[in-house]
């Protein structure tokens, strides 16, 4: 991992931790129980985004072809 990317990642992680801390001080209006727990959005998004990258990468390995398609 190059230096800039590592720095950006650390900065983002710090911001995320601060947001989670701030989340513990607000009143939640949960719709399904778990979505009202402090930091739920951060955890859920980390997992969701990682799955999205993994699924698209895997789909790309299967379905991505070099070169343009005919008529493109």
């Amino acid at each position: 991992m190059d230096r800039l990317r590592r720095l950006v990642l650390i900065a983002l992680a710090v911001v995320l931790v601060l947001l989670v801390v701030a989340d513990t001080f607000v009143t939640h209006h949960a719709s399904f129980g778990i979505d009202g727990t402090p930091g739920f959005a951060a955890r859920f998004s980390l997992v969701s985004a990682a799955i999205a990258v993994a699924v698209s990468y895997g789909w790309g390995l299967l379905m991505r072809r070099p070169g343009e398609r005919a008529d493109d």
Binding site: L12, L16, G67
Partner: peptide
């Protein structure tokens, strides 16, 4: 706060997994 956490967490994943998201020439079936 919910939405900001969502976006910043997704940004963390982007920075972490950037090599997997690099665009490449070609087409998807």
């Amino acid at each position: 706060l919910f939405q900001l956490q969502m976006l910043v967490a997704a940004s963390c994943i982007f920075a972490l997994l950037l090599p997997l998201l690099r665009p490449s020439a070609g087409s998807t079936l």
